[in-house]
Design a protein around this nucleic acid. Structure first.
Length: 924
RNA sequence: GGGCCCAUAGCUCAGCGGCAGAGCACCUCCUUUGCAAGGAGGAAGCCCUGGGUUCAAAUCCCAGUGGGUCCA
């Protein structure tokens, strides 16, 4: 195993008089110009030196600090790159949120597949780290949302075949730039320390320096130079082996918020980055502290900076010590600090929400949407706790305004909708818990853990809320420490086994050249000629045919594969499936054309045209949906078909009938405009720059060039086949909308002749109904409503009549048999009527003080036995005995029972035996 | 993407194989004169939809629809 020590020895350090020292407290190695230094300079080995005594010459706002950073590197030949969205899943599918500036260039740039937009480059990237959520507000320096200033350089060995090559710069320049930036801000560089560390993550690793000034880590300089390799020479702290790469990536992170804080020397970072928001919240919550109280808070914050506070728990633990040093009671300190901590957190969370919602994340129960919902609910709780009475949408809007978003109305609307949903959940939860608490209060038992888990997992009610409500009712609740672990257990924990799709004859496919995709050259042509490169036998008896070029579109991007025929002079085969594996297109065919043969291909034109119409229509519909519902609307999945297609879109509420009509109108307007549908293959970065990440509606393509499809004003990265002009779509008919999960709505539609067919189906249903009712089409709804009402009224009337009939029967005759049993009269009677009637009759008999034993042969054999109050005959037992005689069973409470069996022929026998059965039961 | 929960009167919910229930709201009357008043009476249900099991399903099973919630 090799040592990394040499990796930190730079010529720069030698030239500039830096020495390598060892921290006397923690033992870390670090570089400094001050040979007399004893510690590494990072808490807990040192204290903050800048609170109330700013570390830079000038006081800078967050915006000014950002600009200072960006222009510093721009002046040193770095291309300035616009920040990416915080929703990293807009351009990559392995993470949800952007957590560092390097995320912008993963995976395609760091792996060398795509060139960076500029090399070297600089960016100030908004990031969100949910891991820090508990620390926000408490430690004075943690924020969930922050801007990471990063300057990056991508180096690769000459001839390694990457999208970039050569040396831009590496460690020497990186460290020099960093020190120079400090010096430009008036820092004496002998106060800096650069601590040696190792960075590991995402399959890569490398040495890094943590740059510390005045006790605060302001930058991390990472040199990505290793990649995971089982045979590698370097073992890293994650326990894996790594080896040297032929690429070297400079990955730096400058915490713009911390630099701003350093320049201002405020007690916490929050007061430095959004002072006006903190002031607003303090005013609004009525936190007008006296000078003396403010003084305590100020000194406490300062003390916090001097302590080793890395986690929210540390803060709690340090409270006593702080209170003692300040000369106040711990309780008083807490009383003063907690509302402020909440306010800091509210400001930070509002900023986080502004980023998330502003970048188009829609709250939901899945993915990034779920994270947004969590943050929003947490923020709402804080707002209520601390007593801020401004609506949450206003707070988020303040931050969205500061951040310069122009979709603020939508953001506010989303927040309002979401707050309302949360309120309903709380209402529901409160009722549920109160009811449960009452139940357990009655029994004098504590609420068990299983109930707590159920309440949280299925109803979203936090255990502390349960405890609070239960306490009001004097019920104990014991929340175990491992509560969330128990919830996790309930989810099984077992990892779903990824079923790796096996590609048949994969090895050989890798050796074949990529198939020429003729369908991109002319999307309207359906015939072509080609040479058979390879034929594989399939297990099902068909053949997989690889050609040198093809007009057959393989399944992809939600578009099903083409069908058609491949023929030689001798054989013609039906193509039933077309798939692409690594650029090689495989046609599944029911005949073997023979390797090396010339073939003619003919695509099933009707099918393909239907698919093309639906594909282009998909672009038109999503474009229209964005116009009607808002710019946040994004595709969450799509499937094209020949008869209808569907797209799933992200939207925060269910859409109304009016909105559906509006979308349909606009879509058909685009069709009528007969706009040209065009394709182009621009450089991916230029495309992103020109059109934004909304390009990637249907997934993220790889490669330097990407294919763009323009439909009217709409631009999307897309690999599918399209009609030449929007008029070719013919017509678009929205067939259905359904909410497939929270925040995702499925639009089903048909295009062209399929739209006409679909309309016919709906019309047929209407016409048939109208005919059945014998009314005009437009009268169908009203008539149906009237029929329904009448049907209900008639049901009630029948019910009524049955009761009257039963009374009449009970008071006057019929062929009933009356016997004496248990000092009461029993009426045994056969009425061939349904169960309702039998029950009514039985009730009528009981009214008169008699036992009723009724039988019916209307459907099988059925019995009802009813017994008046105070008569010692068990109806259930009587019915059981009777029903047994007709091959069935029955039962019920002692005063009213029912039963029956299939054997109707024996009904009379059973009734005949009734008197005897009654006596037996009565005497039992 | 996965797990779990729910659907019964206008509202909030109980019932969990055997006659469809309560509270609030509503209507009529009485007693009162109000700040959640009291009393008497009444009306109000395709127990979400479709299958299945059963002598019998609001209740059990399966599927669908709608809603909620937790996790990745």
């Amino acid at each position: 195993m090799s040592d990394l020590a040499d990796e930190y020895r730079l010529d720069y350090f030698e030239e500039e008089g830096f020495e390598r020292l060892t921290c006397e407290t923690c033992g870390d190695h670090f570089w400094t110009r001050d040979a007399s230094r004893e510690t590494c300079g990072e808490p807990p080995c040192a204290e903050y030196g800048f609170i109330d005594d700013p570390g830079f010459e000038e006081t800078l706002s967050l915006e000014e600090m950002r600009e200072t950073f960006l222009s510093f590197f721009e002046e040193r030949d770095h291309g300035r790159v616009d920040p990416y969205p915080v929703a990293a899943n807009r351009w990559r599918d392995d993470v949800l949120l952007t957590q560092a500036s390097i995320y912008d260039f993963q995976p395609h740039v760091t792996t060398g597949q795509s060139p960076p937009p500029s090399n070297p480059l600089v960016v100030s990237q908004p990031c969100i780290r949910m891991q820090d959520i508990d620390n926000v507000g408490k430690t004075g320096r943690h924020t969930m949302a922050f801007e990471m200033g990063g300057h990056h350089a991508f180096n690769a060995d000459e001839g390694a075949g990457y999208a970039y090559e050569g040396e831009v710069y590496w460690k020497e320049e990186t460290v020099r730039y960093c020190v120079e930036l400090f010096e430009e801000l008036g820092v004496d560089s002998s106060e800096l320390t650069l601590i040696e560390d190792v960075w590991v993550g995402g399959g890569n690793a490398g040495p890094c320096f943590e740059v510390i000034y005045q006790g605060l880590e302001l930058a991390t300089l990472v040199f990505m130079q290793f990649e995971q390799d089982p045979d590698g020479d370097y073992e890293m702290k994650d326990g894996n082996s790594y080896s040297e790469m032929d690429r070297r990536v400079v990955d730096t992170g400058y915490g713009i918020e911390r630099w701003t804080w350093m320049s201002q020397g405020t007690p916490t970072v929050y007061e430095a980055i959004y002072p006006e928001m903190i002031e607003f919240l303090r005013d609004n919550a009525g936190l007008d502290y006296t000078d003396e109280e403010d003084e305590i808070v100020f000194r406490a914050a300062k003390l916090a900076g001097h302590m080793d506070i890395d986690e929210a728990e540390d803060v709690e633990a340090a409270r006593d010590t702080m209170a003692e040093q300040l000369g106040v009671e711990t309780a008083r300190l807490v009383e003063l600090m907690e509302p402020l901590e909440d306010i800091y957190a509210i400001a930070d969370h509002s900023r986080t929400l502004a980023y998330m919602l502003g970048d188009g994340i829609v709250p939901s129960n899945v993915g990034t949407g779920y994270l947004a919902r969590m943050v929003l609910r947490r923020t709402k709780r804080l707002v209520d706790t601390v007593g801020v009475d401004a609506p949450l949408d206003e707070l988020v809007d303040m931050q969205a305004d500061r951040l310069g978003y122009d979709n603020r109305d939508t953001v506010r609307d989303i927040v309002r909708t979401e707050v309302e949903k949360y309120r309903e959940t709380l209402d529901r939860g409160g009722r549920k818990v109160r009811q449960l608490a009452d139940d357990y209060a009655e029994r004098g038992e504590p609420i068990p853990v299983t109930e707590l888990i159920e309440l949280y997992d299925s109803h979203g009610i936090q255990p502390d809320m349960v405890a609070e409500i239960a306490a009001e009712r004097g019920v104990d609740v014991d929340v175990p420490d491992n509560f969330y672990g128990l919830v996790a257990d309930r989810h099984g924990g077992g990892q779903a086994v990824e079923v790796e799709a096996t590609v048949p004859h994969e090895k050989r496919l890798d050796e074949l050249p990529e198939t020429d995709r003729l369908y991109y050259e002319d999307q309207q042509r359906m015939e072509f000629e080609a040479v058979v490169l390879e034929v594989f036998d399939r297990e099902d008896g068909d053949y997989d045919v690889v050609l040198d070029q093809t007009m057959f579109y393989p399944e992809g991007g939600g578009q099903p594969p083409d069908h058609g025929t491949i023929s030689t002079d001798d054989v013609t085969g039906e193509v039933t499936d077309v798939q692409v594996h690594g650029g090689v297109i495989v046609h599944t065919c029911d005949a073997d054309p023979g390797t090396g043969e010339f073939v003619r291909g003919q695509v099933d034109a009707t099918r393909r045209r239907r698919l093309m119409r639906h594909h282009t229509a998909t672009h038109v519909v999503i474009h229209s949906a964005r116009q009607v519902l808002g710019e946040h609307v994004r595709q969450a999945g799509a499937q094209k078909g020949t008869d209808s297609s569907r797209i799933d879109i992200r939207h925060y509420e269910s859409i109304s009938r009016e909105q559906v009509k509006e979308i349909e109108h606009r879509a058909n307007e685009i069709v009528r405009d007969n706009a040209a549908v065009t394709q182009e293959w621009p450089d991916r970065h230029e495309a992103e720059k020109a059109h934004g990440f909304d390009l990637y509606q249907g997934g993220i393509p790889t490669g330097e060039q990407i294919r763009l499809i323009h439909v009217a004003d709409d631009v999307q990265a897309c690999g599918g086949t399209h009609v030449g002009r929007t008029g070719d779509i013919g017509a678009i008919k929205l067939l259905n909308t359904e909410r497939i999960q929270d925040g995702v709505i499925r639009l089903t539609f048909a295009a062209g002749d399929a739209a006409i067919d679909a309309t016919h189906e709906i019309e047929d249903a209407l016409y048939e109904t109208a005919e059945l009712f014998d009314v005009a089409n437009e009268d169908v709804p009203e008539t149906a409503a009237r029929f329904f009402d009448e049907w209900k009224a008639r049901g009630k009337e029948i019910e009524d009549l049955k009761e009257q009939l039963a009374e009449a029967r009970a008071s006057g005759g019929g062929d009933s048999e009356e016997i004496e049993v248990a000092d009461t009269t029993a009426v045994v009677q056969r009425i061939d009527a349904d169960m309702d009637e039998l029950r009514a009759q039985a009730n009528a008999v009981v009214e008169q003080g008699s036992i009723a034993v009724l039988g019916s042969g209307a459907s099988g054999a059925q019995f009802v036995v009813a017994v008046p109050d105070g008569v010692a005959v068990n109806a259930g037992e009587v019915v059981g005995e009777l029903a047994g005689r007709v091959g069935g069973g029955g039962g019920g409470p002692p005063d009213f029972a029912q039963g029956g069996g299939p054997d109707a022929d024996r009904l009379d026998d059973a009734l005949e035996a009734a008197p005897e059965i009654l006596r037996q039961v009565a005497n039992a």
